Computed example of a mutant assay.
Amino acid sequence: MDQIGAGLAGLFENDRPTVVMGTQSRGSLLGVLTARSVGVGLAEVRKDPGRAADSDAWWETSTAPDYRDQHLQLGLRRSLLRSGDSVLFVDDWIATGAQAEACRALVQMSGAGWIGAAVVVDGLVRSDLRRSLRVRSLLHIRDLA
């Protein structure tokens, strides 16, 4: 299991994240492995976030349509990112880039910096978005054919 976290971190071996970000649920699982490999903390992004207490402070945003043509509400506890952090986004698959774009918006809200998106499978069609998000992958969808 540790190899996949190290593999995702290795996609950005010249960058030094201070935080790994992953979306609930598979992104969070991969994020834990990647964060452990790098020796930093995890910022879990929740889908349809609910506050555990009124005192919870969150950044929230909506995604563009995802692969199911749905808009998701994403949220991140403000205490998980600080201005000046360098954030590596991790997920299992990228198809439309909607969740990664929304997560980058959360990073920008916090004042942190976006390193890029490390994913297991790149199925992104838009090359401009791949460059903008700095997507790197272990596999490309065409490798699975």
Rank of each mutant, 00 (worst) to 15 (best):
A145V: 11
W93Y: 15
T23N: 06
D85M: 11
R78I: 01
I4L: 14
S25R: 03
G50M: 10
D54Y: 14
W59G: 06
V125K: 13
M109E: 13
V32D: 07
F89W: 14
D143S: 10
V120Y: 06
A112H: 04
D2M: 10
E60T: 07
L144M: 04
A100D: 09
S127M: 08
L129Q: 14
G5P: 02
L42D: 07
D128I: 00
M1I: 09
Q73R: 14
A64I: 10
A52R: 13
K47F: 00
L8D: 11
A53M: 03
S83K: 11
D48I: 00
P65V: 01
S55V: 03
S110P: 07
A95E: 12
D56Y: 03
D128T: 02
D69E: 15
V87Y: 05
R68Y: 07
V45E: 04
L11W: 05
S25K: 00
R82I: 06
V119N: 10
S83D: 11
S62H: 09
A52S: 13
S79F: 04
F12Y: 09
V32C: 05
G113T: 14
V40W: 11
S110W: 04
A105P: 05
A98C: 08
R51C: 09
G123V: 08
L29Y: 06
R36T: 03
G113E: 13
P49G: 04
T61G: 00
P65D: 01
A52F: 12
G123P: 06
G5Q: 02
A53F: 06
H140T: 12
P65L: 00
L11D: 06
L29T: 07
V38I: 15
A6P: 04
G75R: 05
Q73I: 05
P49V: 04
L129S: 11
P65Y: 00
V40Q: 11
I115E: 00
S25C: 00
S86G: 02
D69S: 14
R78C: 05
G22M: 00
M1T: 11
V120P: 07
R51S: 09
E44D: 10
G111T: 04
A6H: 10
W114R: 06
A9Y: 13
R78N: 03
E44H: 04
S62N: 08
V32S: 06
I4N: 07
R26I: 00
Q99F: 12
S83V: 05
A102D: 02
A102N: 04
V40C: 15
G7S: 11
G123N: 13
R82D: 13
R126P: 02
V125M: 10
L124K: 02
V40N: 09
V125A: 14
D2F: 12
S86R: 13
Q73K: 12
F89K: 08
W58F: 13
A53D: 03
A105H: 14
W59C: 06
N14S: 12
A95H: 08
Q108V: 12
L139Y: 15
E101Q: 15
E13W: 07
R36I: 00
R134I: 05
D15R: 13
S132G: 11
G113I: 04
T18Q: 00
L129F: 11
W58Y: 12
A6C: 10
R16E: 14
A64G: 13
A105R: 15
L29C: 06
G75H: 04
V20S: 05
T23F: 02
